[in-house]
Lab assay of single mutants.
Amino acid sequence: MATGGRRGAAAAPLLVAVAALLLGAAGHLYPGEVCPGMDIRNNLTRLHELENCSVIEGHLQILLMFKTRPEDFRDLSFPKLIMITDYLLLFRVYGLESLKDLFPNLTVIRGSRLFFNYALVIFEMVHLKELGLYNLMNITRGSVRIEKNNELCYLATIDWSRILDSVEDNYIVLNKDDNEECGDICPGTAKGKTNCPATVINGQFVERCWTHSHCQKVCPTICKSHGCTAEGLCCHSECLGNCSQPDDPTKCVACRNFYLDGRCVETCPPPYYHFQDWRCVNFSFCQDLHHKCKNSRRQGCHQYVIHNNKCIPECPSGYTMNSSNLLCTPCLGPCPKVCHLLEGEKTIDSVTSAQELRGCTVINGSLIINIRGGNNLAAELEANLGLIEEISGYLKIRRSYALVSLSFFRKLRLIRGETLEIGNYSFYALDNQNLRQLWDWSKHNLTITQGKLFFHYNPKLCLSEIHKMEEVSGTKGRQERNDIALKTNGDQASCENELLKFSYIRTSFDKI
């Protein structure tokens, strides 16, 4: 039985969820670079991206490699990797027998973001014989899940209580170790020597080791999670996991709180800001991140802002960003909400898709409305799209047979046209069989910064309504002859009103 693990408890099935942008060198404390989270699957090609990484700022997932063999891993080693800020997950990587050479110096898994409450997941690794993470000293947050690894031993010899604050939620089941077939031998045991430290858990006094050649490092209890030197002297209180010299914040392997210019500090002093819960960055760093993602459509890219001495992905609820200094300031009234469309555009074809934009005031991208039916549609669209004030790209209304009016965009005031449909149009209306009105132009103002209007096959939309939009939106004169079809717009509506004058002759039985 794995020490510190839980057996036999019912657990939810383990679901495996399925960018080499360097964020800056980590400095003297770390020998390499800070790398983003990685999802490495199918083959070993991307694994080489770990070569210079000291910190993975995010998670590391290595999974679904069915053609790899043990010899493929023999020359692979990433000794610079010290810390993973989120979680480490391995799933069905064939041929991998140990992690001792792959990650010989991995010391800390912070667990800032977890995989279903777990910071370390080893699942269905069919050839893994031992973990071998002999320098792993601290899992700051989260638990361990090690399950269905039929060859995995050296679990009962690990004292997880020396690595985690609590072992109650560890789930370590259905491994070879369960069948008591392992016969784990710690260093020196074969020669009758006791080389590794022994600890007591559940009444068992057991030597602690990761492999037959690597003991588990056990520091004096007084050192807590700070770690200790090879001689057993406690590291500085700002260290986490390990250090090369005692009581020196510049000799830590990793930091308990924050890293700044080669030393570990309790908090980031001005003019620095907390970033990702582990390091200090200056304003320029946060500003660069903001600008890199301002026009990016890459998933996970955030326009970072500053709030409460932190550089964070977005302002919290009730705050909006001051564009001059990136500071989050309290909103006066309802907060603006910028919604970034991942692929640059979004099609609204149902109430469900409209709900995804609920509360958005600025759309960074283009909207395509293609709704053919739905219950209580006008009210639903207004509830979900009615706060949109600005669209950076274009607005396209296409084959939306259920629409009679666009009044559900009740606050839309600006279409920038930074991206144009077919390279020309910022407003595009095609084949809307029941569209009769755009907006009530006596109450609604709309500016279209650039781009043209396109109207074709809107049989109940009168040309007068379209011409009014040209005047109000500032697009009059931009359109070419064929942009607004004269014969297919309003051709099934009563669009022309003329005053009919009647004269009559009164007659009676005795007068003409």
Rank of each mutant, 00 (worst) to 15 (best):
R263F: 13
T250F: 09
G227Y: 12
Q216N: 07
S98H: 03
V253E: 10
I222N: 08
V173Y: 03
L131Q: 02
C255E: 00
D159A: 06
V206Y: 03
T189N: 09
H226Y: 14
G203W: 05
L44C: 04
C252D: 00
D277I: 04
P330Y: 15
P330E: 10
K67D: 08
G232L: 10
N117F: 09
E97D: 04
A230W: 10
N308P: 02
D247Y: 14
I62Y: 00
M38F: 02
T157V: 06
G183F: 13
D247F: 07
L29D: 00
H48E: 14
Q204A: 10
P269N: 01
S213L: 11
S237N: 13
V173H: 15
F103S: 00
P330S: 09
N150L: 10
G95H: 14
T194A: 07
D247N: 06
C255M: 01
Q216V: 12
T157Q: 12
L63V: 15
R69V: 07
E180R: 12
Q61F: 06
V108W: 05
D165H: 07
C196K: 05
Y94V: 11
C252A: 00
P313W: 14
L114M: 05
H236T: 02
F285S: 05
F275I: 02
A190H: 12
K191F: 14
C235D: 00
P70E: 03
L47P: 03
C311F: 04
C53K: 00
L106G: 00
N195W: 12
C311I: 05
T157Y: 09
C239A: 00
P246Y: 05
I82P: 00
N175V: 02
F91L: 04
T329I: 15
D178M: 15
C293F: 04
S112L: 15
L164G: 15
K310D: 14
Y154K: 11
K100H: 15
C53N: 00
G241C: 05
H291P: 02
D261S: 10
K148I: 01
E314G: 05
K310Q: 08
A198D: 11
K251S: 05
C280S: 00
G300E: 05
R297H: 11
S323T: 11
R208V: 00
L29A: 11
E207Y: 07
Q216C: 09
N202S: 12
N175H: 15
D248T: 02
N195K: 10
S296F: 13
Y273G: 02
P197H: 09
V218K: 13
N195L: 12
A156I: 10
M65G: 05
C228F: 03
G203K: 09
C53I: 02
S324Y: 03
V200F: 14
E97R: 13
Y272R: 02
Q303M: 13
D261G: 12
P79K: 03
P104Y: 01
N322L: 14
M83E: 12
T199H: 14
Y94F: 07
L164H: 09
G37H: 06
C335P: 08
M125S: 06
N309A: 10
T329Y: 12
V121P: 00
T68K: 13
L240A: 07
T329V: 08
K67T: 06
K176Y: 15
W210I: 14
N149I: 01
L50Y: 05
I84L: 02
P36T: 09
C239N: 00
E231G: 15
F91Y: 11
V34S: 04
R145E: 02
L88H: 00
D75A: 04
V218R: 10
V265T: 09
Y304M: 05
M125L: 03
K176P: 10
V206C: 00
T267Y: 15
S225A: 10
A156S: 09
F283M: 08
S143G: 08
Y319V: 03
G183R: 07
T229H: 03
Y94N: 08
S225W: 15
D177W: 10
L120G: 00
G318F: 06
F205W: 15
F123N: 07
V218T: 08
A119T: 04
K129D: 03
H290Q: 14
C243P: 00
S161G: 09
C53L: 00
Y273K: 06
Y273L: 07
T45A: 05
N308C: 02
L164C: 07
N202V: 04
C243V: 00
G188V: 07
G95N: 06
D248W: 03
F78R: 02
F275R: 01
Y118M: 13
P270S: 12
A198F: 10
L133Y: 02
C182F: 15
W278H: 10
T107H: 10
E33F: 01
Y87Q: 00
H236Q: 02
L89S: 02
M321L: 02
I306V: 11
I122T: 03
L29I: 01
E207V: 06
A198C: 11
C255A: 01
Y118V: 01
A254K: 03
T211D: 10
N105L: 02
S225V: 06
D75Y: 14
K67H: 01
D75L: 09
L81T: 05
P336D: 08
I146T: 01
K67C: 08
P246L: 06
I40T: 04
D39S: 09
